[in-house]
Simulated scan of single mutants.
Amino acid sequence: MMIRELRETVCRLHAELVRYGLVAWTAGNVSGRVPGEDLFVIKPSGVSYDDLTPESIVVCDLDGVVVEGTLSPSSDTAAHAYVYRYMPEVNGVVHTHSTYASAWAARGEAIPCVLTAMADEFGGEIPVGPFALIGGDDIGKGVVETLSGHRSPAVLMRNHGVFTVGDSPTSAVKAAVMCEDVARTVHVARQLGDPLPIAPEDIDRLHHRYQHVYGQRSHL
């Protein structure tokens, strides 16, 4: 039951990548950790977003080995598996080649924290990870090394694209959406001149408010 529900959730979330214009053709993927199990689910490789079904979502162990499903998993499976092995607090991982964020990645340049929305969601700049080839776990190593000790749930992998993490697949998708949004805005700001920095102490206050005060809180 748990795996089936997670497959349904992850399948549905892929439509959000399309809705927000974060992917082209079959590129990009969402995965989610199975609660209480050394398993995760991930998009199959090269399958159209329109053709995704919960049954087509592949179940893998934390070494990236398929344990359930008839299709080959994403070519980024080893990277996702590495993140889940070494970041136990992460329950969702997303990868996109969204245009503006990937343009920053192509330059190997972090996105500076010059917007309150960045302070809210990312707690500072969106960092750049190292160049790594697709297929093995080198990308996963770069994601983990870059995000360790960093408040950002997003990393720009150099010459590649965006990886985001979250405490759920939904929060990882949200981070990917927000990453592209601020990447675009900061790019436009730089065309007009030098964006104004936000003081570190204000970034801290904004991040704390958004993470702990903003939105609806349960009183139960």
Rank of each mutant, 00 (worst) to 15 (best):
S152L: 10
T185E: 08
V93A: 01
S74R: 09
D138E: 15
A27T: 09
A154S: 10
M2R: 12
V128S: 04
Y100C: 10
D167K: 10
G21I: 03
E68N: 08
G135A: 13
V188R: 13
I42L: 01
L133H: 13
E121W: 01
V30N: 04
A119D: 05
S45K: 12
Y86R: 11
A79L: 06
E201G: 12
M178F: 12
G28K: 04
I139H: 11
R205Y: 04
G123M: 10
V155Y: 11
L71S: 02
H95G: 01
H187C: 02
S48I: 05
L13W: 02
T9Q: 12
A183I: 03
Q191A: 14
L206T: 12
V188P: 07
R85M: 06
L62C: 06
P88W: 00
Q211M: 12
V162H: 04
F163H: 00
E180S: 07
E109G: 05
C60L: 11
V59W: 07
H80A: 08
E109Q: 13
G46H: 01
L196T: 15
E37K: 13
P127F: 04
V47R: 10
V177E: 04
V155H: 06
S98L: 10
S72M: 12
R4Y: 01
G124H: 02
V143Y: 09
R85F: 01
Q211W: 06
K141R: 15
D194V: 14
A183C: 04
V66L: 00
G136W: 08
Y100H: 15
G140Q: 10
R7L: 08
G161N: 07
M178H: 08
V188L: 15
A119L: 03
A24M: 12
V213D: 11
R217I: 15
Y214I: 00
V41E: 11
T53V: 10
D50Y: 03
T99P: 06
E145R: 03
E125A: 13
L196W: 01
H97L: 07
T77S: 14
M1S: 14
R151Y: 13
R190Q: 13
R33Y: 04
F40W: 01
V41K: 05
S168D: 06
F122R: 02
G21L: 05
S168H: 04
D38Q: 11
R209C: 10
A132R: 08
I198K: 03
G129V: 00
L206Y: 09
R107V: 08
M157W: 01
D138P: 09
D194E: 15
